[in-house]
Amino acid sequence: MKKKKIILSLIAIILFFSLLFILNSVFNSHQTRILRLCGIYVVLALSLNLINGFTGQFSLGTAGFMAIGAYTSAILTMPPAQKASAYYLEPIVPWLADIEMSFLPALIIAGLISALIGFIVAAPVLRLRDDYLAIATLGFSEIIRVVITNLQNITNGSLGLKGLPNYTNVWWSWGVAVVCIIFMALLINSSYGRALKAIREDEIAAEAMGINLFRNKLFAFTVSSFMAGVGGALLGHLMGTIDPLMFRFTLTYNILLIVVVGGIGSITGSVISGVIVTVAMEALRIVDGNIDLGFMVIKGIPGMRMVIFSILLMVIILFFRRGIMGTNEFSWKWILESKLFKKRKEVA
């Protein structure tokens, strides 16, 4: 059974990347951009779901960690000449001025720095619960933004950075997403994943069963920060431009929306919803602009798109609290044992 599952998974991954290859060659540039965004949002949703959905610690710091990742990777990959011209208010500090590395190490360092700061932040804030934790992490995320805005000679302050190398193609975005999906699936089904879920279900009982609350939460928070940092870096190299305003808490809310729609505590849900919500967000851009029906023009209302999404978030939480998947997961066992498959076997 286990071997069979691994083989099935490998086949699925190969099929998936073949599909990506096809889509990548038939899509126009706007469509592939959305495709790339989907992969990034899957990573971000998994990051938030790990801490909120699986560990039950309501953190709202994702945008801040994304900012750290995006800035780290941007500074590490921009050519020195470009940095020299970008930092015109105050030159970049000398120790960063001449660094230029390729994408993979930059991405990893982006994740690591984000994880390190997550680790440091976690020590005080993880003593808090629920709402307090939410406010404290939201606060930290905003502090990170304030710091970035003020560190003129490192981040270029409120001017932001323009012309980041356009590295995030479909392969990078979805390659990272698939690695994150596999990592999460393996982690969550391991004994450590069960410990996290126990904490989510009942902290006092988990502690009574010998689970070290602080250490496990710290682990989840750090890994989640790592993933958010990598996601932020990918996003930066897709947008080509980053500035502190991009990483406001509303960005975290969008990711929260994805997690809630997919199901809080479901990897499968985050993946499905990451794709659906991202595509919908892009598709709904039309309501922000004018819609030309040929015979008449419906006047667009700027901002309407986000109204629709906030209503969606409310509807889901009020009426479909479990989202698409609840806490359920896709599994081969479930597919193989489903009626459809059994019948076919009987016929054969």
Binding site: D130, A134, T250, Y253, G303, S310, I311, L313, M314, L318
Partner: peptide, 27 residues
């Protein structure tokens, strides 16, 4: 409507409401 729901749902609902009012205000 969420009086008997898990606290986390209530918290998300409150975030959603805040986001909704903000976005309506922008529009």
């Amino acid at each position: 409507p969420l009086r008997d729901a898990p606290r986390i749902s209530l918290l998300i609902s409150s975030i959603g409401m805040s986001y909704l009012i903000e976005n309506l205000a922008i529009v």
